[in-house]
Design a protein around this nucleic acid. Structure first.
Lengths: 199, 199, 199, 199
DNA sequence: CATGAATGAGTATTCATTCAT
DNA sequence: GATGAATGAATACTCATTCAT
């Protein structure tokens, strides 16, 4: 019955990953020890190492997971029909990102920032995050195309450029939240609407 | 002879901080050991600990330094007169941030991202970065006021909101550079210009 | 199979404690490094720290052990029946304390003096030693009662006072042995017999 | 003017020794750092090392000082005329030892116990203490002779044995004070009087 | 001579990882 | 497979001592 075993394996992996995400969200990558993860996952050291060959591999899996969660969230929203104006679209995405923390049971933005820092050191983390980011950028580009076609942007606007800028506002949102704590989806996108009203 | 002594102390602190910045830019905070910093600084362990009481204090000093360098850079540019349009202003700032790496002798953006991650764990790092970020936000807000008065923004545009959005694009620039490697000041600000042309 | 595990744990603890006692008897608490203990115990650093969370905890365990060994020794003898005269009783105890060094494989008196010095600094060591000392004092008091009832002391003698004085001669014996090296159980108790012959 | 210089040197030595005694009484030998002593003495590192070539030499000087203080105290009292009974003589000495702490400005008994522990490791400390102890033992022996001649002891009592026993009660007094905290000169000597009343 | 900045060997402790049971 | 005791290299930090100024 390989299927049961596979399901079992997948469930165990999930269990470990969830435990690790909770600890990393709370403590960061380098203050989270494997012993922490092992204790939080209610498994043995041997078991954890049966699913992740090293801490680095676990870190990569975490980066993959967090990148994936953010990407899926954004993709889903950017495809909404009919398209809403850019500032509203971005606001909706940021709103949804905040909801994620509650849904996931751990602080998604905090782990995302940890993952960026790790990308500076580990090319594999960088590659994992790059894949997800490109996916999201494409998604925003598709949104920009549809927005342009719907007359929300200039007819000759470059969708890729617009997509990049919109996505480019998300890291700032997460960092400001983390450091300043005084930004909201509304406040962070209000300026964009103002800029679009420029003469 | 307090003057000589004070200058000497300041120079030594600088020497250590520079060494640490170089290592942290290359390896990140937690892969940089105190032994690395000690070797790179050409001082002894005791000497380094005479200037920084712990690794954490050194990390805070690094966060302060990097935050300060970025803040000064941006402030200087945002005060240029006469004001240029937002996208051009931002582009100039991002351009200057890239130059910093060459000037400073270490990868400023990489250290900045490390510092954000550390802010998630250390409230003192958070406080240090928050102070700098507020300074820069105010600086951008002042810019937005001047841009509005110069007719570059809608007459009733909210300078604070515009300032927040412009600053909010910078973390994204650094993160995309780090992870994707394919963004330039031009590409990152092009979308903003497009959005401002919206109907 | 908790029983096997518990026994195993106890045996390992003993192994480490024995190693530490040997080193401390030879070098004192603060010249004995954890590396010394680790080497002497034939275990790894991690293993040792799995049984004792810190050097201080190990020191407390040593104080407890040495205090316990001395206490048990004295208790056993003080309960001998029929009771012997005080000077002879004390002499027997001091004799037995000297034998301990040979039996235990390390210099018990030396470690005891170290423990007293440590008690000056660590309240927990103080508490551990206090418990043992009270036990022994009670034991001597019980002896004094029996000696009084056997007509070896004045009928209205205060057993607690006598017990305190008899126990009070033991530290002096250990200190003189350590510093002067020229005392024996006989010489140390001879004066007591003389004093009891006073007119 | 060598005399002024010598006095000056002696005063400086005293200043350092006093500072060290205060710190050692409070923290013990091995938790007192040379930096502590230097700070407490209000001198520079170089100055302190000009008077004591090493920490070990300072420790020996402390042992010498504390041993000397205790010896002088006891000698003075044991020579009182006419002699008092042994228990009263001992009580007076213990009383005086307690006063020392107040007079000296630091906890003399605590330092004495530290010194005994150090004697286990350093032969020079051992030699220093041995000299003082012999002096005191002789002093007590002289007392015993006089007490015997005054009819306070049996006419054929051995003064050396009696002296050894009386001195032998002092370490116990200091240790019990340190560890149990519930002994007084009265309580510690009461049992001796009881024993001397034996049938 | 005095200073105190600098030295650097030494110390306690941690933690990713393995492997005998 | 699963366990968790054991490993040991690595790490942050200390402190007695020196010596250039």
């Amino acid at each position: 019955m390989p299927r049961v075993t596979d399901e079992h394996r997948a469930a165990r992996r999930e269990q470990i990953l969830d435990a690790a995400l909770r600890r990393v969200a709370a403590e960061g990558f380098h203050r989270t020890t494997m012993a922490d993860v092992i204790a939080e996952s209610d498994l043995s050291a041997g078991a954890v190492y049966g699913y992740f060959r090293s801490k680095q591999e676990l870190i990569r899996a975490i980066a993959d997971r967090v990148g994936g969660v953010l990407a899926s969230t954004i993709e889903g929203l950017a495809e909404a029909d009919p398209p809403v104006p850019p500032a509203a679209a971005l606001e909706a995405v940021l709103e949804r990102v905040l909801d994620l923390a509650a849904d996931a049971g751990y602080d998604v933005p905090s782990v995302a920032v940890q993952a960026w820092a790790e990308a500076a050191r580990d090319p594999e983390v960088r590659a994992v995050l790059a894949t997800k980011m490109r996916r999201v950028r494409d998604s925003w580009t598709a949104y920009a195309e549809r927005a342009r076609d719907a007359g929300l942007l200039a007819p000759d606007a470059d969708p890729a450029a617009v997509g990049g800028t919109l996505l480019g506002l998300m890291p700032g949102f997460l960092v400001f939240r983390l450091v300043l704590g005084d930004v909201t989806p509304q406040s962070h996108t209000a300026g964009l609407a103002e800029l679009m009203r420029s003469p």
